[in-house]
Design a protein around this nucleic acid. Structure first.
Lengths: 247, 247
DNA sequence: CGAAGGATTGACTCGGATCAAATATCGTGG
DNA sequence: CCACGATATTTGATCCGAGTCAATCCTTCG
């Protein structure tokens, strides 16, 4: 058995696994053929660039960004290991977003044609992909809803819950756990539409009230997940159904 | 030739047209089989409801909404004639959004299985669908970006431009034209994340500065599209590539 | 040790929300 | 056709959440 980062390749049987799933050989080959690494901070795709490939993240964190002409940046979504992003806009060739590595990453940059071919021929893969598309859409919706209607406290609480839940995937979220976010307060602000100063104040308020605590560089400790969910204005179970694709 | 609202059906040749496109017979049949009308104000799908169908809007306007537990509503996106929405979230069965008719509408509610079958067998249809998905994603991104980073003036200006452009599809946008939005200021506020009072003030400011004017119930007159685009912080040509699917 | 980037805190400002009242518009029935 | 009630729009006054500016305090790392 060979290993490409978080992707385990089990060549003899023609089957491998990513994320617990059996992965057909063709998929596996495509991933391997276009595998690469990039250091933290790399911009993998600029807004407006030609885009003919799909990004499949194997390990690390990436951000999907979009900026106003005056330079103000908004993080639309994060990309975690095993997730994909196709940056194409309606014309199918221009990227509508910027793709940035937040940590050192390894990923596979798969030509869109090959990717489509895979989806067309591999039924299971297509089903997975559709679930992930739906999950991404639901995530964007929840995010948009909070930027439109929720307070700074709710936005931060929501961001922490969303990311915690995505990191745990199908394991239940609970109190007393710690997880690491490879983000500065500035970046958390770029995600939540807040200034870094206000992110700081809001995090301290959440800590004062005993909901969560952040130590060092964004090691987040969950003290009271229920109160946090209430602050974020989410129902944990519903959110899970909505944004976490079934295994 | 029979006509179902904006969809022209040309039975003899087994080909029809929607939106200028040739439409295969199977598609046509599916649309007809699930066609219906709803009055303005109807809620076609509630957040959290079971969702096993895709909505294809034939005429009128719909809104895709999402609400916080305390009742605050955000309009995520509008649906115009010929556009589709699948309200499913990651679990593929629960709706993550509310679907509401803003005007009297006619639409086709197509079972997801039948819809998938169509997409799987009709190559052209699938290409169209992918472009529309990309367009919808790009729209959401632009919207999210403005809720996160832009002023009330920019949000309103952007909303007017986006809707104007979607109404004109592939025709160029220009000065002196008028179009109708079947929206109250309250609804425009629900879309842009502003109070109806502030929508009103902002529209009047735009009028005072000679950019756009709104008459009666949201008849919008474009006076200076370039200044409006600048206020909205968009490049008209780029936005068109991004959010309008090629014909 | 010093430099640099991030976090924290305080002081001040301002955009947009909220509350309230006045007008305007529309649909309906008499 | 007009009067009425319901629904939208407009305008004013006031308030508050979050931005901005600026100083200080860590950390980390060369």
């Amino acid at each position: 058995m060979t290993t490409i980062n978080s992707l385990e390749i089990d060549t003899p049987q023609g089957q491998s696994s990513l994320n617990g799933h059996a992965v057909p050989q063709a998929y596996c080959n495509a991933i391997r053929a276009h595998c690469c690494r990039r250091p933290a901070g790399s911009i993998l795709k600029l807004e407006g660039d030609t885009s003919t490939s799909v990004f499949l993240l194997l390990s690390g964190w990436m951000a999907i960004n979009k900026a106003l002409p005056d330079g103000d940046k908004q993080i639309m979504d994060f990309l975690l290991a095993s997730e994909t992003i196709d940056p194409a806009s309606a014309d199918q060739f221009t990227s509508s977003v910027e793709v940035e590595a937040l940590t050192d990453v390894s990923l596979s940059i798969i030509p869109r044609d090959a990717w489509r071919q895979l989806l067309a021929t591999q039924g299971q893969l297509r089903m997975d992909h559709e679930r992930r598309l739906a999950a991404a859409r639901a995530r964007l919706s929840e995010h948009l809803l909070r930027l439109g209607k929720a307070s700074a406290e709710a936005r931060i609480a929501y961001a922490l819950i969303e990311l915690y839940m995505r990191l745990k995937k199908n394991d239940p979220v609970c109190n007393g756990e710690t997880f690491h976010l490879p983000l500065t307060q500035q970046q958390l602000g770029d995600f939540t539409g807040l200034s870094s100063v206000h992110v700081c104040r809001t995090l301290r308020r959440l800590k004062r009230h005993g909901l969560v605590e952040t130590q060092d560089h964004m090691d987040v400790v969950i003290h009271d997940i229920d109160a946090l969910a209430q602050t974020a204005k989410v129902d944990i179970a519903e959110l899970h159904r909505e944004i976490i694709p079934a295994a």
